[in-house]
């Protein structure tokens, strides 16, 4: 079976980036977690301290324990808890990387509809990732 027959260049480009970015994500997640729970790096709040409060609503927990959220951790990458959190942020960004990669391919194929659709999709994900959409309590 020839791949090119069934999957066009856009799909192959997306698949290629998705393959290595998601594998890297799994490595980051395991490495970050190990660094955190085995206390290989210092953390603002130990796992035991977080566990004492994990029955609380998210907003309540953040009032009593210093754990990363949103982008407030960016200057503290040397912390174990931050490293573990950053690996989750990375995983949540993989789709955006993959979408960004296919825009030049759509442009090359002069596919205006999907260039615009993909750009809009990245804009939606980018806006929510930047924290520009608020809600909650």
């Amino acid at each position: 079976m020839k791949q090119e027959l069934h999957a066009n260049r856009v799909q192959l480009a997306y698949a290629s980036v998705l393959s290595w970015t998601s594998s890297l994500g799994i490595f980051f997640i395991v490495a970050g977690y190990v660094a955190y729970v085995f206390r290989l790096l210092p953390s603002a709040a130990s796992p035991a301290e977080v566990a004492l409060h994990w029955h609380l609503r998210a907003t309540e927990l953040h009032k009593v324990v210093n754990v990363p959220s949103g982008w407030n951790w960016i200057a503290q990458l040397g912390r174990g808890d931050v490293l573990s959190y950053a690996s989750i942020v990375y995983l949540s960004s993989v789709t955006m990387f993959c979408l960004a990669v296919i825009i030049p391919v759509f442009l090359k194929e002069k596919d205006r509809i999907y260039t615009v659709l993909t750009l809009l999709q990245i804009a939606v994900l980018g806006i929510v990732a930047a924290g520009l959409v608020s809600g909650g309590h």
Partner: peptide, 10 residues
């Protein structure tokens, strides 16, 4: 993530 509802421990 922005509402602080993701804990790596979970």
């Amino acid at each position: 993530l922005h509402k602080g509802a993701v804990l790596p421990l979970i």
